[in-house]
Design a protein around this nucleic acid. Sequence first.
DNA 1: ACAAAAGTGTTACGTTTACACCCATGT
DNA 2: ACATGGGTGTAAACGTAACACTTTTGT
Lengths: 248, 248
Amino acid sequence: MLRYSGQQRLLLAADCIIFGFDGRDIKLLLIQRGFKPALGKWSLMGGFVRKEESADEAANRILRQLTGLEGVYLEQLHTFSVPDRDPVERTVSVTYFALIDINKYQQQLSDEYHAEWFHLNDIPELIFDHRQMVDVARKRVQYKATLHPLLFELLPEKFTIPQLMHLYEGIYDTTFDKRNFSRKLLSTGLLIKQNEKDKSGSRKGAFYYVLDRQRYARSQQSFLHFIPNPDHLLRNGQASSLVKERKS
Amino acid sequence: MLRYSGQQRLLLAADCIIFGFDGRDIKLLLIQRGFKPALGKWSLMGGFVRKEESADEAANRILRQLTGLEGVYLEQLHTFSVPDRDPVERTVSVTYFALIDINKYQQQLSDEYHAEWFHLNDIPELIFDHRQMVDVARKRVQYKATLHPLLFELLPEKFTIPQLMHLYEGIYDTTFDKRNFSRKLLSTGLLIKQNEKDKSGSRKGAFYYVLDRQRYARSQQSFLHFIPNPDHLLRNGQASSLVKERKS
DNA sequence: ACAAAAGTGTTACGTTTACACCCATGT
DNA sequence: ACATGGGTGTAAACGTAACACTTTTGT
């Protein structure tokens, strides 16, 4: 069999950054490693890409192993490849981020992996470069959610507008005006109001909505402004003053 | 030395999708392979990732080998990993896209690789999955350029507004209103007008501009709307009607 | 009756679009 | 003088942000 000569061969892994929403907070799913190296430490769920599968397929398999879920939103994020990122042996990691409805998976979570949800502002120390992966994923979700109705992936079947707003506020680590948020949201025509109310959050109760799945599917590749003001995204970076030099 | 057992090891390559602009059209740099497999066929410039380098470093090295250029805009795009994408041996490719000023490189282009520029609408058949890589790259550039002043990377030191508009029109495969385009562009404060004119394009001549590099650097991570109407981006996809249901 | 969260409407402002004419120059 | 592409201004429509009060209901 013909092969390329004189080149290094290495291991390929897929790691999943899994975000979930419980109706109140955004969380990240981590596992406590039951194997070496770094036994007992927290890490992303990952695994080696097998001989007969692509990295995409591996990521799906890994996600299913951990959560029991299929057909989940899963997108390739970035590939990490510095030579010594894994101390044991050179391993290149293709990372994926997943958005799941926390309730759907809950029961199925296999104990085998000692998985736990962590609040985004309360992430423990992670192995290797996994913390960096999480940070990149969070930024990507922020970025994408400005333009795409991406965060709907995290919602349960029925949800309320205050819940959804909470979700966005969590991702962007900021607060929004509920009147403007609600108006913009409804103007997309993606939500269908139910008669039923969720009374868990308040005395008055908030109406449930469901996604208009057809419209949602079509809106996926389109561009929408979900965030009142993209300036929110600049809080991390430097220049916000230059973005739009508003005439004073 | 400790190693992971029972896993497949494979080759890692970096492939570069190199876009250039000659002041009139956007082009893609391809090489005619002087080696097997697929000797004589057109492909992206690529190479194996070496033992001591990351994929990012490999991509920079490869770009330098071909163009002689350093410090070029280069961004990781996507990782392609289906098992048999390379018929010789399993090779995973981390792809990068580069944006370069076509004039800067021109002379330096090594003949060794039989490189040629191709117009985006006139790309020859490519090996493996390289065509797919090009398509993904083009979409990514389109996407990013809506929000970031990305395409400035393709410009020579001095450029005119009609040139720049031509560039955008090429990427999006559409046309813009020059009055609106020019106003929006100048409103960014990123351009500094020169006294000199480029007379190559018309009798009257068009004023040269240069980039305000400081402001540009700061604007890099921020979000701007460079395209008159994001609907342009939807021409490929389905739903544009649903994006904004304008009240009639 | 009160506390707590949900829900709703208006106004002012800035941004975006559509659109048409004059300008400078080389031949 | 004319052809070619470069450059500019305005009005109408739209979207966005800021803002405060009423509603519901469990205790």
